[in-house]
């Protein structure tokens, strides 16, 4: 069980959260070229190690969080609340 320390609600089980994937990607501008959109939508760094990722506290305060988690040990070392949902 992952325990995610929601900055608004405190430590909660991962069942309360919805995973939002890699949080390092930046959404291209609407008129960006196809290559930029391909990169954003489909390609991932997929690191074996520390990963900054989105989680939404869907069954709690509903805030989107940025979580820094290790993909081998599952240790979580940092959680911050996003001000603009999945735009950071």
């Amino acid at each position: 069980m992952l325990i995610i320390h929601c900055p608004l609600c405190g430590p909660r089980a991962d069942k309360e959260f919805t995973y939002g994937g890699d949080a390092n990607r930046t959404r291209p501008s609407d008129d960006a070229d196809e290559a930029a959109w391909y990169d954003y939508v489909f390609l991932r760094d997929n690191p074996k190690g520390w990963h900054i990722e989105f989680w939404q506290h869907a069954q709690g305060c509903r805030a989107w969080l940025k979580v820094e988690r290790h993909t081998v040990t599952h240790e979580i070392r940092k959680v911050t609340a996003c001000r603009n949902g999945r735009n950071g």
Binding site: M1, L2, T71, T73, H74
Partner: peptide, 13 residues
């Protein structure tokens, strides 16, 4: 399990 992982073990949920 639903999130990126290279750990060859699963979680309780």
């Amino acid at each position: 399990d639903g999130y990126n992982s290279y750990a060859q073990r699963g979680n309780l949920p």
